[in-house]
Amino acid sequence: MDKRADSLATAVAPIPDGASVMIGGFGSSGIPFGLIDALLEQGATDLTIISNNAGAGETGIAKLLKAGRVAKVICSYPRSPGSIWFEKRYEAGEIDLEVVPQGTLAERIRAAGAGIGGFLTPTGYGTRLAEGKEVREIDGQGYVMEAPLPADFALIRAARGDKWGNLGFHATARNFNPVMAMAADHAIAEVRALSADPLDPETVVTPGIFVDCVVEYEVRP
């Protein structure tokens, strides 16, 4: 088995117009900048982007927003310092936004990857973000029913990978990356160091079964 792609362009080639795409990362760490640039170059549009943030400055997701490739953003925190392209598109009514509490976002993604049909969480109970959702009371505590959140593709970033798709991460660059790999039909990983030799199984964080394609991208943000 060899899941290595020879270039970022080859790795993102299968992504069609209208696809839902999970993108890993939090703040500046763990964002697959190489894959995002390749997706921009590839030209797919009308995308639904699922990520914690909605890009900042002129890099990453902000580039896709600037180029008008995004139809909808599902995230927890779109309003970061420098998220000008998100704000422009949002104010102009050019994109849809679904705001999800961060832990609920992570768990909805996990549920999709783990075959769970939905779950009850206390997060958001009684707030605007629970409106229209099924609620239940268990032992005096209110819960909100949340649905799994799958995607067609995931673009993720890791520190280390092997040809079987096993991945290891660095520091806080792990964040949403492992769980997005699980939840997408086709997960593409950009790794800083890609090895033909197997990673030590004890150090593998994301097992290769969740990863469809690995491509080397040595640049650190």
Partner: peptide
Amino acid sequence: KFPPAVGGAMD
């Protein structure tokens, strides 16, 4: 005017 942004506060 401002897009809502919840982050991890509710969790």
